[in-house]
Amino acid sequence: MSTSTLQETKVVTQRFDAPDGARLDGYRRTGGYEALRKALSTRAPSSATQTKASPARSKTAS
């Protein structure tokens, strides 16, 4: 298969190539900690429902 047709789907790796993605400023500039702000503004059961509806399936550690 030709590599040009293949594209990664970057969700958890989307900031990996940003020069300051590992720093708080860079993280916040790209929407970082807004999910936490959103979660904190709801009562806990609601955010639990959201993640339960779409399980990031638990990855094995071994």
Binding site: A35, T51, S54, A56
Partner: peptide, 9 residues
């Protein structure tokens, strides 16, 4: 998790 909270299940 942050991506699921932000973009929905």
């Amino acid at each position: 998790v942050p991506h699921i909270i932000t973009n929905g299940a």
